[in-house]
């Protein structure tokens, strides 16, 4: 109803949107900087030493990347879910489109993401670099640079595709579970939409949102395992053969996969139990 949108509410909407965009911007710049820096560090390692020694350096910089990227992607995913669920009506075509895409992406097993990263992002690496600009230092002609930047884009995009949909879906579910009759308890006391979200909906939905974040994180762990797979594939094809190290990293990947599925299971059950709905 039109009369519902008071001036204060419109103002809140604008503030929320701008906060979202600022977060998005800051997140982008942060990611950009960190990625360039980690790339430079690993490239020095690549240039200073033969290939086998470079692998662990890349691995750790990428684990760091995993944590940072998933944290930012989760924050942005939560913001997205709040906007979709609380501000856009269910019939809105943007909301329906995003929800459809999210449903598809959450349904894809992580293994396919690895194949996707190899198949699509590697193939179109040149185009991606043209869009994003190359973070490669000028004096690095001698190094096989192209593959490093390619890896960076492949990782980044795979991560966002994996973590964001899970976060959006679980956060939306958590918000949806706080039904209108429950919210009315606060509305009848004269609380604004913002106050209801902050004082009532957030405390009730927080545990489930957190569980969703953990699920996304564990998906990211699984992704780390896959990225190790990609690395291994990449470097083994690059340098000929490296069967010993290949086995080492493969077992690491396996361990991370097990860890991730355990995390998913524990948080799925705790997420279900911690929301107390009134009878």
């Amino acid at each position: 109803m039109n009369s519902m949108t008071t001036r204060a509410e419109r103002k809140q909407k604008i503030v929320l949107q701008s906060i979202t965009f600022v977060i998005l911007g800051v997140a982008f710049i942060l990611m950009w900087n960190v990625l360039i820096k980690t790339r430079v560090v690993s490239m020095q390692a690549v240039s200073a030493a033969p290939l086998p020694n470079a692998m662990p350096t890349n691995l750790f910089s990428d684990l760091y990347l995993v944590l940072l990227m998933s944290f930012l992607a989760i924050l942005f995913g939560i913001a997205c879910a709040f906007y979709l669920q609380e501000w856009l009506p269910e019939t809105n075509w943007v909301r329906r489109l995003i929800e459809g895409l999210v449903a598809i992406l959450t349904g894809i097993p992580s293994l396919l993401f690895g194949i996707l990263a190899i198949g699509i992002f590697f193939s179109y690496a040149g185009t991606l670099k043209m869009i994003g600009g190359s973070p490669v230092p000028q004096n690095a002609e001698a190094i096989p640079v192209q593959h490093d930047t390619t890896l960076f884009y492949a990782e980044a995009l795979t991560f966002i595709l994996m973590v964001m949909p899970v976060t959006i879906k679980t956060t939306q579910g958590a918000l949806h579970s706080i039904a209108t009759p429950i919210r009315e308890a606060a509305y009848v006391l004269g609380a604004s939409k913002w106050q209801v979200l902050k004082r009532q909906v957030m405390p009730l939905a927080f545990t489930r949102i957190l569980a969703g974040g953990c699920r996304a994180m564990s998906r990211a762990f699984a992704a780390a395992a896959l990225l190790i797979g990609i690395y291994t594939w990449h470097y083994t094809t690059e340098s000929g053969k490296m069967p010993g190290r290949f086995m080492l990293f493969l077992s690491g990947a396996l361990f991370l996969s097990v860890l991730s599925s355990t995390l998913i299971e524990t948080h799925r059950s705790s997420g279900r139990n911690t929301v107390n709905l009134p009878r």
């Binding site: 009759p181 009315e184 308890a185 606060a186 009848v188 009532q200 009730l204 009134p278």
Partner: peptide, 8 residues
């Protein structure tokens, strides 16, 4: 309201 809802 008939359904008692405690705020958290």
């Amino acid at each position: 309201l008939p359904l008692p809802v405690g705020l958290p």
